[in-house]
């Protein structure tokens, strides 16, 4: 059952996943070129001063990258299901509806997570290439809320796409937007260190909530 659901979800998202993957890689290539250029034209002391005294984030352009990635994967996965009420096709499969919805969201979350891990690896490697390892670890902690924002954006997009009623869609847009906004507030190094775990735990609640619109879809009366 899982492999079959995986096959269907992969067929839907593969093109968009590859586009999102390339977009992420491209922006990290840009980060690498930008830092290399910076080190070529500036004194090391000046770059150190900018980064650690003034607090300039040289990688702030990736802040919204995973949010966009999450939204792309979520839309690619669930909009085709909702066009012409094709979600009914999935619910006629001999699979428990809740399991079906959760597996589909899990697969999408995994697809976004792979890109998150790639981004974390590239960020650590690129920053570590130009700065001491402490700076690379700090970059990971600084960017962690953005990774969670991407995962939240994905599940939120899934919820919004699956929800059959417009008023509730608007509520989900507000909740998702609020959470994503919360993860993107800090503009300093490691500004979420004390709150990240709690925020991440709360955002995890988004995952099982995918059952709700699926249940409401099957139980609507019009």
């Amino acid at each position: 059952m899982f492999l079959s659901i995986l096959y269907k979800e992969w067929l839907k998202v593969r093109l968009y996943w590859v586009i999102a993957f390339l977009l992420n890689v491209a922006l990290f290539v840009y980060l690498f070129i930008r830092l290399r250029h910076l080190f070529a034209i500036e004194h090391d002391e000046m770059i150190w001063y900018q980064a650690f005294e003034i607090g300039t984030l040289h990688y702030s352009h990736i802040k919204y990258l995973l949010i966009i990635t999450g939204m792309i994967i979520g839309a690619a996965q669930f909009i085709p299901e909702m066009l012409g009420h094709r979600f009914r096709l999935s619910f006629h499969l001999p699979v428990r509806p809740n399991a079906l919805a959760l597996w589909a969201v899990f697969i999408g979350l995994f697809a976004v997570s792979v890109i998150c891990i790639l981004d974390a690896f590239l960020l650590y490697t690129i920053i570590g290439n130009f700065f001491p390892s402490e700076a690379a670890k700090s970059a990971l902690l600084t960017a962690s809320p953005w990774l969670f924002a991407g995962l939240t954006a994905y599940v939120g997009t899934a919820l919004i796409a699956l929800e059959p009623q417009l008023p509730r869609k608007l509520v989900y847009i507000a909740i998702t937007g609020g959470f994503v906004w919360l993860f993107c507030q800090g503009s300093d190094y490691e500004s979420y260190n004390r709150a990240l775990c709690k925020l991440a735990l709360i955002s995890l609640l988004f995952f099982p909530s995918a059952i709700l619109p699926a249940y409401r879809y099957r139980n609507r009366s019009s």
Binding site: S4, Y7, K8, P80, R88, L89, H92
Partner: peptide
Amino acid sequence: LLFEGHLAYEFMSIAQIERFYSSY
């Protein structure tokens, strides 16, 4: 079940849809 309008997963090909449904 045949849905009104012959609903199908349009992102699949002839072979892909057969492979998908056959497993169930």
